[in-house]
Nucleic acid binder design. Structure first.
Lengths: 206, 206
DNA sequence: ATATAGTTTAATAGCTCTATTAATACGATG
DNA sequence: CATCGTATTAATAGAGCTATTAAACTATAT
């Protein structure tokens, strides 16, 4: 193995682990495989991170926090409702673009291992219904102006989330079934960013 | 263990396996656990189904076929475009309602184990682009009438799929975070069926 | 009652995985 | 160069898992 790697072994382990956990999930990834891919002894994984679980939680927490942080993006009071909606939708989408495998990892771990919901609860406890009630208020203002139909913030968020996450969840399958040539995929993703915003916007129109 | 169960052990094993595979995925489910939950010896699982992989594939194929079959639902020529769209969206949604854990299982297995894409290809090879081109044609008719904006069938299907599957993928998390009281969940699901149809319909409006 | 086919069990081989331990190599510092 | 802390390795305990095998059980037909 080339030991010319600039990074410390400790960080390399973390990086490789992140890749593998994202790709195949906690259960399907072994510390042996991580070590092999780093090119070091398997004991080193435990030397630095004690246990597979602890190493995983480090990475998982980071992802959840990235995810949670997105929610603070609010936009400016002066902007139109449409503009603010667009900003949010784009920010959400771009977070997934930068972490395309995050949605699957989070979904996978929370579904197969419900115990992990606790971790999420803790991290989200800070800003829980705050975002929802914020959006709720904005929707009410627009509704009172007669600009949009009556719709709950939870519903809007659920739709937006499904559309954005859905694309990235399906991406490996789309690629695998080679429905689209590789070079057009990037294209398609970029188009879906605007499309998803449009869908949410139109779904609100009276 | 009560051996008064009406079903044969062979079928019981299949049923329990289906539950567990749906719940926790292939990797996280052991034949030992299946046997324990059935109340029989672990060797029986292999006696009837040879290997864990073969047992899994039996179940996985069934799910994929259920999924693929939905696509044939077309609707009547005489109906309006809206009506046909509604029929399809509802059929799709109801298939998920009847198999709420199917989306996760399929997604999980195809993502963590790309080798399984082959299985899907085989099953889908029968009616591949047929459904897409069918919808494409219908969209063109409506577009030519000036009733809807220009949009590709793939885009529409991706959106519809994301919205419908998204709800059922998120359900365990929504329940786990106890965002909603248990009795209101059924309510919410039923509302989302119409809502998702509305979203797709509105996304098409010129 | 005995033979026979189909079920079920206990035991275990063989594998892989996590985690630990003790020994060794490395590298900086005094 | 001797020392000391850190990094790394080999070896292995201990657990769980899949799959196989041979023996035991059960029911049914002759």
């Amino acid at each position: 193995m080339d030991k010319l790697n600039s990074q410390s072994t400790e960080l390399q382990i973390m990086d490789v682990a992140e890749q593998l956990f994202l790709e195949k999930g906690f259960a399907m990834t072994s510390t042996t495989e991580i070590a092999k891919q780093v090119g070091c002894n398997q004991a080193l994984v435990h030397y630095y991170y004690r246990s597979k679980e602890k190493l995983f939680l480090l990475i998982f927490r980071k992802k959840i926090e990235t995810f949670a942080n997105y929610f603070v993006t609010v936009g400016d009071e002066s902007m139109s409702f449409e503009h603010r909606l667009k900003l949010r939708m784009y920010a959400h989408f771009e977070m997934f673009q930068n972490n395309p495998k995050m949605p699957f990892m989070i979904l996978n771990e929370l579904t197969t291992n419900p115990r992990r919901l606790q971790t999420v609860k803790e991290i989200f406890s800070k800003a829980p219904g705050l975002v929802v009630s914020q959006l709720e208020a904005e929707l009410k203002v627009e509704f009172d102006k007669g600009r949009i139909r009556k719709m709950s913030a939870v519903d809007v968020m659920l739709s937006a989330f499904s559309l954005n996450a859905g694309l990235f969840l399906l991406l490996p399958i789309i690629k695998g079934l080679s429905v689209l040539p590789d070079n057009e995929i990037k294209n398609m993703i970029e188009k879906r960013k605007e499309e998803n915003y449009q869908i949410i916007l139109r779904s609100l129109r009276e």
